[in-house]
Design a protein around this nucleic acid. Structure first.
Length: 426
RNA sequence: CGGAGCGUGGUGUAACGGCUAACAUCCCUGUUUUGGGAACAGGUGACUCCGGGUUCGAAUCCCGGCGCUCCGACCA
């Protein structure tokens, strides 16, 4: 994409109504636009990152046999009354609205109820199981306090998967498999080293749950990391003496081995048991003819929060630093025109290189702005946007038939023969 | 939901109750410049969040809204 056609611009100054680093950088670099507190639009650059993250999630969910679907955001009150979660006293972060005829509707903050109810039309027999279904969808949560930029919004994107298994054993087998899929997602988006599977309390549905927590000072949670085993427990576990004892024993770790860290929850999986299948009478007929409740699990990950987390964890003083797999573009080609400007030899060579990259299937952002935008400004913008590989072509480099390559993450600079540029992307 | 702070051109800031609301940046014209956010000249752009009130006079003081940020509570 030619940068002259990109409608967003970078900003030199931090927005006055944001303090958090993720919002500051993402807004200044033109990835997101704030609409109101906790509600952000995704601009072309930000959407590219979001789509890449979603595609990685799709691949990893597909790899463990999950199928994608898309449920509705508008929710039927009756369905939620079935599980007892319509009441504002039970769930206090509902957005509710009404039809013209005063029928109440909700805007989905999660989708256990709807999907369980839907599955009644498709799950009848043991032969229909298991089913693993997920969606990537906008969720609405009426948070009393939106904060931390895109880390905690009122409208946000969420991948939520639900598993439907015939019994506890097969549920547990899939639950374990899902952990692997989640780990691969964090590795691929560049957060693997800092993300720990964290045992947490189960809340109302089960004895325990697992969170994926990325260590960062911008986090809201306190976790206790066992660095040797690469696992953690949530503070809430240690606060509960009986839970702490059994969970630490199960994990084979001792309290003294744990190090306290601030972290942001970037994923959460938990067994649902038959909490919803009982409520909705989602049963199946087993081979022996008896009726049994489906055993369920729920698996969430927030792509938009992941963007914020990457911005918090991987950025530096000059701006964003995108890992290869989620970067909006693989290459940032910068041309420094000669005195003939857009008609000059350097411009022609850079145009040709851009075409070559594009034809090779390499996504490149081409900073083709003319000499009114000087080198320093182009470099500063490039640092801020954070594309992994920068390729600079100028009169100087062209004279040697080279380009200059700078790696955003490390700052490493080297000269590469123009003909070898494609080799940078294998 | 408790507490604190804030709301002024697109952006970031300034302005004692008193001239035509100032500066920087961005943007537009032109000249010059060309490897880390250049220089000069000219120009566009604001009912100072909204509604009331006090006053000869309000961006400024008072009241009420709305909005934003932060701390806390909450967060299957």
């Amino acid at each position: 994409m030619r940068q002259t056609t990109l409608f967003t611009k970078t900003r030199k100054e931090a927005p006055k109504d944001e303090v958090s680093k993720n919002a500051d950088l993402l807004i200044r670099a033109g990835f997101i636009h704030k609409e109101m507190a906790g509600v952000y639009s995704y601009l072309p650059l930000g959407l590219r990152v979001l789509n890449k993250i979603c595609d990685i999630i799709r691949e990893e969910m597909g790899a463990i046999g999950a199928q994608e679907l898309h449920l509705t955001a508008l929710q039927d009150k009756k369905v939620w009354e079935t599980s007892g979660r319509w009441d504002d006293a039970v769930v206090d972060n509902w957005f509710k609205t009404k039809l013209k005829n005063d029928t109440e509707l909700g805007l989905g903050f999660t989708h256990e109820e709807q999907l369980t109810n839907l599955m009644k039309d498709y799950i009848r027999s043991v032969h229909d199981l298991p089913v693993y279904a997920y969606q990537i969808q906008t969720k609405f949560r009426n948070e009393t306090r939106a904060k931390s930029g895109i880390m905690r919004g009122r409208e946000f994107l969420m991948k939520d998967m639900y598993s439907f298994s015939k019994d506890v054993a097969s549920h547990e087998a899939f639950y374990e498999k899902s952990k692997g899929a989640y780990k691969r997602v964090y590795e691929r988006i560049g957060l693997g080293d800092k993300t720990f599977i964290t045992t947490a309390l189960g809340g109302s549905f089960s004895k325990f749950s697992h969170e994926f927590q990325t260590v960062t000072d911008a986090g809201e949670d306190l976790i206790y990391v066992h660095e040797g085993k690469g696992i953690a427990v949530n503070k809430e576990v240690l606060d509960d003496a009986t839970a702490a004892q059994s969970i630490l024993a199960e994990l084979g770790i001792a309290r003294e081995e744990l190090v306290e860290k601030k972290a942001i929850e970037v994923g959460n999986i938990f067994p649902l048991g038959t909490r919803f299948s009982d409520a909705f009478e989602l049963n199946y007929q087993d081979t022996d003819g008896t009726k049994k409740p489906v055993v369920m699990g729920s698996y969430g990950i927030g792509p938009s929060r992941l963007i914020g987390t990457i911005a918090e964890v991987l950025s530096d003083a000059n701006g964003l630093v995108w890992p290869k797999e989620v970067a909006p573009f693989q290459a940032h080609l910068i041309v420094l025109h000669d005195k003939d400007g857009k008609e000059g030899k350097v411009a022609k060579a850079a145009d040709a290189l851009y075409d070559k990259l594009t034809q090779a299937g390499i996504e490149a952002l081409y900073d083709d702005r003319d000499a009114k935008t000087r080198a320093g400004e182009k470099f500063a913008d490039s640092d801020l946007i954070g594309i992994p590989i920068r390729i600079i072509m100028s009169e100087k480099t062209l004279a040697e038939d080279m380009v200059e390559v700078k790696i955003r993450a490390t700052g490493e600079v080297r000269k590469v023969p123009s003909c070898d540029v494609l080799a940078l992307f294998v």
